[in-house]
């Protein structure tokens, strides 16, 4: 968006310039699509430039984390669009984000309904977890407790906390996968024959 590479943005922009190659490689591996990675690195320039000039302890790791979050933001939007438009998409085969091609505005009630259904599904999946796993996840993700606090509260070791969280997250993933949360083609063995994921568009 009209940003001059390497000028404004101070330290982070300079770090980005120095590590652009590695970040691009990471983004390409994370997305599985080189053109998408190029787009995202532009977003990263934009965001890094917009950051307030507070010192960051490890700017390189900070940029990787920002890049990782950009992909997450995009995946979430894509999954949600896919969940909402699944029937429509499969009928027409049009990528979810070709917004200009779509004639009708989204029906707000449908959107809200889809979101409510999704929330109910996720809450049910959380409620169905074993109490220990559920409590560890809630403390970690909802209440924002530190590993040390969780360890103290559950009376387990710090490394036990990490194991507990990993186990709980895997269970949650499995529960969500079972009810189709990730879409019909999103399990590890079912990428499309051309290697793309549903809703992905190859380059401009």
């Amino acid at each position: 968006m009209g940003r001059e590479d390497g000028e404004a943005g101070g330290g982070l922009a300079a770090t980005l310039a120095a590590h652009r190659g590695e970040l691009l490689r990471f983004l390409a591996a994370r997305c599985g699509d080189a053109a998408e990675a190029e787009d995202l690195i532009q977003d990263l320039w934009f965001k890094a430039g917009a950051q307030p000039a507070t010192p960051v302890a490890n700017p390189r790791a900070y940029l990787f984390r920002m890049a990782n979050n950009l992909v997450l933001d995009q995946r979430r939007a894509r999954r949600r669009a896919m969940a909402r438009d699944r029937g429509w998409l499969e009928a027409d085969g049009i990528p979810a984000h070709a917004v200009q091609d779509r004639a009708d505005p989204a029906e707000p009630t449908d959107e809200a309904l889809a979101r409510e259904q999704e929330a109910a599904l996720v809450r049910q999946a959380i409620a169905d977890l074993p109490p220990g796993a559920r409590r560890a996840l809630e403390m970690f993700r909802i209440e924002g407790r530190s590993h040390a606090e969780i360890a103290q509260e559950l009376g387990i070791s710090r490394s036990g906390v990490e194991k507990n969280l990993a186990r709980a997250m895997k269970m949650l993933r499995a529960a969500l996968a079972d009810c189709g949360f990730f879409g019909p083609a999103a399990s590890p063995r079912q990428a499309r024959p051309d290697g793309t994921m549903p809703g992905t568009e190859d380059g401009p």
């Binding site: 997450l72 995946r75 979430r76 999954r79 999704e118 929330a119 996720v122 809450r123 959380i126 996840l137 809630e138 993700r141 909802i142 997250m169 895997k170 949650l172 993933r173 969500l176 949360f181 990730f182």
Partner: peptide, 12 residues
């Protein structure tokens, strides 16, 4: 995994 975690943070 990250989508499941994000869903947890959002709806949880």
């Amino acid at each position: 995994i990250v989508l499941a975690d994000a869903a947890l943070a959002e709806h949880g």
